[in-house]
Design a protein around this nucleic acid. Structure first.
Lengths: 203, 203
DNA sequence: ACATTTTACTACCGATCGTTAGTTAATGGT
DNA sequence: ACCATTAACTAACGATCGGTAGTAAAATGT
């Protein structure tokens, strides 16, 4: 407003909040919620425990914040993949190719944090289920749009689209477990090729 | 050998080991390894903590025993489903129908313990990864046999079989997450129908 | 009857869990 | 200079964690 940044009043933070959240996300992503202790988070971030609490609240609140943040980023990424993929059956192939490129990168070797968390905590911490449910719903919407574009105009059959979307979603979930299970580049490639072969029957 | 049961020497157990293992399995299955405490196991089984330790060893050892036991039972069940399914593409449909019957029952609402465990602990307790890896390998073998029988003799293409097996395995893993995510009978049915439609293209 | 073996049961261990009070340090506002 | 505000940092809290002595009880063997 007045030309310069309005600094906050008290002592300034020694750490960058976003950078720390990234590091904490990586930990939760790899080890899961209950296997990640506050001591682990302190060690990974270099931020003192009390500072973590005063900044992010309790472990539950911190994890909820991390899940929301991850949700937004993950959906942005997925949407970007769908957008870049383009229309038609070739669009689905392109999407799978973009997905492959991402999955073989180091940053995605733990699968999807939201899916993992949903599976880890659905039987014990019902509060976190919602994130996974919401995410799957949102992702399903995007994938459905991608698949719908692969059907020729005028012949689009809603039930066929839904069925293919169900299969594709289930495939994505299975792929998540495959990646988290430690699959290497070859295995990921094979699985995606298998889906490509199925998608080819959609022409 | 001598006509009567050879009783053990000391004070007899007040609990049935198999029944207790069943109860403990259910707990681990639902809540996962790290969210299940020894106190939980004591409460669920009614067996005192020291008795659990003297009978099954540490929590890690107990869990390993439970995983081995579950492994055997799960593979028996899967093999039975494959055997009952019969040959041909209709055999795969039959397999999926048997699978559906099982998944809507209460006992399977938590997915597969081995798959869940593999996902939960692969980033923190590397000792338990092996069970899931072995199980997926064994299951894959069975499914491959089922799928191979669906290809007409003489035309069987090994690469096609492998590709369909990859897709089917990925589907099974995704279905596992779908079930554990709390899917109801309808959603499970829709997902299985979607796979059925794909299998129909294999004729 | 007595010793041996195995289990049931109580009580407790040190370590780690998530969490918080209390103090020192660094900034902006007046 | 002084105050208000915010954060860094230390030190500890009670609870729970997995795990284990030590003792009482119930069976078999001789």
């Amino acid at each position: 407003m007045s030309g310069t940044n309005t600094r906050s009043r008290g002592r300034p933070r020694l750490f960058d909040e976003d950078a720390v959240l990234d590091e904490l996300t990586e930990l939760f992503w790899r080890k899961g919620y209950s296997q990640t202790s506050m001591a682990d988070l302190v060690e990974a971030s270099g931020v003192h425990k009390s500072s973590l609490y005063s900044t992010f609240g309790t472990k539950e609140e911190l994890f909820a914040k991390i899940l929301r943040r991850y949700f937004a980023g993950r959906m942005d990424m997925m949407s970007a993949l769908v957008d870049r993929a383009g229309p038609g059956v070739d669009g689905i192939h392109a999407f799978l190719e973009l997905l492959r490129s991402d999955l073989v990168s180091d940053s995605s070797q733990y699968g999807c944090l939201l899916v993992n968390t949903s599976s880890e905590l659905c039987g014990s911490a019902p509060g976190f289920e919602g994130f996974g449910v919401e995410f799957r719903k949102a992702l399903r919407e995007r994938l459905r749009a991608l698949i719908r574009q692969a059907e020729p105009d005028g012949i689009a059959d809603q039930r066929v689209t839904d069925q293919r979307t169900d299969l594709f979603m289930t495939f994505m979930l299975g792929l998540n477990l495959t990646v988290r299970g430690g699959a290497d580049e070859n295995e990921i490639g094979r699985v995606i090729d298998a889906m490509n072969a199925t998608v080819d029957t959609w022409r």
